[in-house]
Amino acid sequence: MTIAPKHAAGSSGPADSRAVELQGVRIAFPMANGTAYEAVGETNLEVRDREFVAIVGPTGCGKSTLLNATAGLIKPAAGNVRIFGKAHTGINAHAGYLFQQDSLMPWKTAVDNVAIGLEVAGVARREALERAREWLSRVGLAAFADRYPHMLSGGQRKRVGLAQVLIRDPKIILMDEPFGPLDAQTRLIMGDLLLDLWTADQKAVMFVTHDLDEAIGLADRVIIMSAGPASRIIGDYTIPLARPRNMADIKSAPEFHEVHREIWNALKEEVLKGYKQAEKLS
């Protein structure tokens, strides 16, 4: 592995139009036997402001790890994470993060969970609660504001999570298979909700998923990562589908199938490699 280059390829355009730049980022975890497991090999990625980028790859390819590095939750072993042109360490204050697992505070009601992001930023509690109720009605949960997370369905919890992230008006939204645990119908509905919200207020989005349909339906660009260890980006596809889109209808568009076939051909090989890798490890 080479030392990280100072500049990633293709870093052109005004500095503030680049929401996220990963420059020669490598991520490794210490193992029990003293060696390091390299989860993500040298990676360069650029996400422009207002761009919706989906990251797809086989299981265990380090997609989430890449998001965590962008979020500032983990520190890359090498390379730079630049946020709006500035080198970044610590928690990324520009980013909102929707996690795969349930991450609402179970001891707070839905409205309190949504309001907390404003409250800790110093917004008065009354105003925070008012705006939280607004956001809950925007995600269709006005009637559920005073419920605790365990009284909500999986899809409803994700909606609360979405409102919790968006109320803080982050410039960058990181999503780690946010709809992974949901059933197929709910996923479609959540995808449409996300598209509506994103269309209304476009942010830079990094959306990790293993569902290629979902990735193509939502994103401007689809990034393919190779199977781990030391996974890296092996494909970068622009999605030419017109917006506004609808998750259910888009699958019948001929362009969708073309793009899907092209990306799947690249991805298939990596998925198989990923399975072999998993077999070897087990």
Binding site: I91, A93, G96, D102, S103, M105
Partner: peptide
């Protein structure tokens, strides 16, 4: 839960 903790940190 590590997810709740990470989420709380990301919420500032």
């Amino acid at each position: 839960s590590p997810a709740v903790l990470s989420n709380a940190r990301m919420l500032g």
